[in-house]
Structure formats: C-alpha cells, structure tokens
Design a protein around this nucleic acid. Structure first.
Lengths: 203, 203
DNA sequence: TCTGTGCAGTGACAATTGTCACTACCTCAC
DNA sequence: GTGAGGTAGTGACAATTGTCACTGCACAGA
C-alpha cells in the first residue's frame, strides 16, 4: 500500500516514516511539506492513501483535502492531527476524509487505522470521537475553571495560579483535575496544548 | 493614567482589569476585543496607553499597532504577549510599540512596566529580551532534542517519548532539562506552549 | 597514545502534579 | 427548617517531573 505523507514539519514527516515503515505492507511513496507539493506529487505517482496534516500554513489541510478529493477521488485520505475539535472533525468528514489519525496514538494503533481505512472502513479513533463533544465541553467549563485554564495556558504553576486568582493551591489542583476529566486529557501539558490548538485555529 | 485594553479573549480582559485596578493611578478607560473596536474607541475617548494583544483574529496586534500609531501618534502602546519570539518583537518595535508586557509576569512587574512606559521609557522585560535570541535557540536545539520536543508537544509523557524514540526515560528527562535551560523556560508545559505559539504564527 | 568533548545512560533526590475522600459553607427549593 | 447541590478547601498519597552528579563510550585532534 503506497502512502504519501503531508506535514509542514519535516521532523514529523521523518518520524512518521520511520514508525510506519515498521510494517512491511506499508510503503512511503513520498513526502510533502505543503499542500501544493502533495498535489503535484499525486499527478505523477500512483498512491493509495494520503496522510494529511490538518494544520499547515499557506494551503491548510482542509483545503488540500478538498482539492485532492476533486482531482483524485480514488485516493483515500487520512487526516493527521493532535487534538481534533468538533468543527474541524466535521469539516473534514464533510469534505470527504476517510478518517483521522491522532499523532498521540500508539504506532500499532496508527498502523491498524491505516490498514482499516485502506480496506474501505472509515475510521475515527475513540479519542477523536470523544473530542467530537469537546467543543461543548470547553465552553462547558465553569467560568472559574476557564480562568484557571487561561493562567495554566500561560505556563503558570499551580501555586502561581492560586496567588493570581486568590484561591488555594489545593483548589487549583482540584479544578484542573476536574477539567482534565471533562476534556478527557491526562495532564496540564495536554490541557495547555489543547488550549493553544483551539486558539490557533479560531474559536 | 487612562488605559485601553485590547485582547480577543474576554477572560483575559477581565482578569487584566481586575489585576491592574489594584493600582489607584491606573484607570481602565475601556476594553476592546478587536483591533477595529480599539480604533473606534480611541476616536471618541482620550487614552494615555493601549495594552494590545499581539495574537488576535481578523486584524492582528501588529496591524492594529500600525494603525493606532498612524492615527494617534501620542498614544503609547504596550504589546501584550505570552512568549515573544524574535521576529514578532522586531516587527513590533519597528512599528512603534513602546514596550512589551508578558502575560506571565507578576502583577507588580506589569504595573511597574506600565508606569515606566507612561513616563516615556521604552520597556522590554528581561524575559522578552532573552527570547530575542530564542529563535536561534530553537534551531539551536540538537536534532535529537527537537524530536523529543515534538513528542512532548503532542502531549506525551517522558515514558511514552522514551518508548517512541527508543531511548531511556532518564535520557528524555535530561534532554528536556537541557532544553528548558537553553530556552529559559521552567517546565514541560511552558515548553509545549512555546512550541505551539511558534507554530501558530508561522515558522 | 592521551586528552578533551559530546552524547546516552543511571540513580538518587526534591519538587510539582494529579487524585481522592472528606469537610465547611452557601443558597435555593420544598 | 431541612436537605440537595454547588463551590472552595484540606490533607494525604502516589506518580510524574526536573535536577544533578557521575559513569561509560565513541571519536577527533594533538
């Protein structure tokens, strides 16, 4: 099965190539750092599936997705992302994506997903599915929790947040714990990442 | 001293207002969530200084900065940011910003900065100054370190990173420690934030 | 060969973080 | 008034994280 990898980050491309080449049935036919590059590659090479990063400068993942779908309707497209939010997920499916690959999934899971999609199954990992409702959840956070989140996303420690918002450190910890639970994340770093990813798209 | 706060995040606006109103000499004359709003506010109200978030949708901080400078050259403008990178810093100074306020600075320091700028001193906090060279530093990271950074920025734990990159957990810890030192950050969360902020601008 | 330098690793440690059970207080509805 | 539900807090705990000193190894240059 021939794959084309598209991600603006060369390091991601490399590490994906290494990880995926563990499986003998997967062949990395090519790599591209931009949507335009991906399109021109497809014009000259046969490819079964494209792994397409959603967040790219110039032509973003969704636009690239639409163009590929228009020109090469046979090629299956797996969107590559870290945390998918509802809107993005929705737009990708609408535009004809065959599934989602989370960068934080294990290699085995990623390979499984690729194979399943190759066989025609549309695959959205549980995590991605869960994050379907993440958007509501983000706004589901209480106001006080959002304030904590904001400070956390500036890189402050629990103690610093507590001082800033005039509450005890224990409460800050509890609140973060609650948020992690609501958003199905594991630690403050993932929370900060989710916050900035959300912000960098727009809303 | 009359201030206008501009940030697309209403929560940031509120908390800034609360924190800054600690000081009796500071009066929050108004708040705006968009550059355009800020401009129209300035047309109708006298203001000494504008605190302007760099990252905003629609009209970004730098464009807003330029327009305000053009129309209201007397008004001092303090750019509001989390981590400034070299390019942004440079563009802001070039466009006539009077200084930088880091969201992660303590309230006392923020107030001090505001007062200093009001008195005509251009102020760039040490942290911002240090990050002047941060850009080179980011690329100064060894390749192996960048790989670790990438995984960290996906929200993986040390153990998971170790497994992915085939190295010991201790080494991952050491490498992160070295990166934190190089970039003058404190913990993995700040590192992840820096990564995504960099990414969300473009390069 | 010896030396120095850089990289990967180990083990110990202290601090921070995340979880959990349980308390105290407030307020709204009944 | 009483109880239910929400919010803030405490204390204990286990796990994770960050730091540091030190080892082992490879490799380049004198």
């Amino acid at each position: 099965m021939k794959l084309l990898l598209v991600d603006d980050d060369a390091l991601v491309l490399e590490s994906l190539e290494i990880l995926l080449s563990e499986d003998p049935s997967i062949v990395i036919a090519g790599k591209a750092e931009q949507g335009a590059q991906a399109l021109s590659f497809l014009q000259n090479h046969p490819v079964d599936m494209v792994l397409l990063d959603i967040q790219m400068p110039v032509m973003d993942g969704i636009e690239t997705l639409q163009r590929i779908r228009a020109e090469f309707p046979r090629v299956k497209i797996l969107m590559l992302t870290t945390f998918a939010d509802y809107r993005t997920l929705h737009r990708c499916l609408e535009s004809g994506a065959s599934g989602f690959l989370l960068k934080s999934d294990s290699t085995e899971k990623q390979i499984l997903t690729i194979k399943a999609v190759h066989q025609g199954l549309p695959v959205i990992s549980e995590q991605a599915l869960r994050s379907f409702s993440e958007d509501q959840l983000f706004s589901d956070l209480k106001e006080r929790e959002q304030e904590v989140l904001m400070q956390l996303a500036q890189g402050l420690s629990n103690k610093e947040i507590a001082i800033r918002l005039c509450m005890s450190e224990g409460t800050v910890r509890n609140m973060i714990s609650v948020m992690l639970d609501k958003l199905d994340l594991r630690d403050r770093t993932q929370l900060a990442i989710a916050y900035w990813q959300r912000k960098s798209r727009g809303r």
